[in-house]
Amino acid sequence: MIKLLFFAQLREKLGCTSLDHPLPTVATVGGLRAALIARGEPWSEVFADKNVLAAVNQRMAKDNAAISEGDEVAFFPPVTGG
C-alpha cells in the first residue's frame, strides 16, 4: 500500500484529505494518475489536469518517478506561498 495526500483545491474537489491505495500496476507517478482517473468522477476530471503536481516522499516528482511500497505520494496544485 502507498499513502496518498491531497492539498488545497484538489482536496476540496475530491472531498478527500488522504487515502491508502495499493501500489499501481505501473509503479510510477504517471501510472498512479492513470489508476486514479480510472476511479471515475471526480478523480477523472481532477487528474486529467496536467497542472496537478506530485511529490513522492516529500520531494517533487515527475510522471516517470518510481513509486515503491510504503511511499507517501502527494498531489497538489501549483504552489502559491511567499
Binding site: 488545497a8 483545491q9 496544485p77 501549483p78 504552489v79 502559491t80 506561498g81 511567499g82
Partner: peptide, 19 residues
C-alpha cells in the same frame, strides 16, 4: 517550490489564489 497554498476570503466568497 515551497508547498504552501493561499486561500482568500473576500466579500464575494472564498477563492484559492492562482499561481
Amino acid at each position: 517550490d515551497a508547498p504552501f497554498w493561499k486561500k482568500e476570503y473576500t466579500p464575494e466568497g472564498e477563492r484559492w489564489v492562482e499561481a
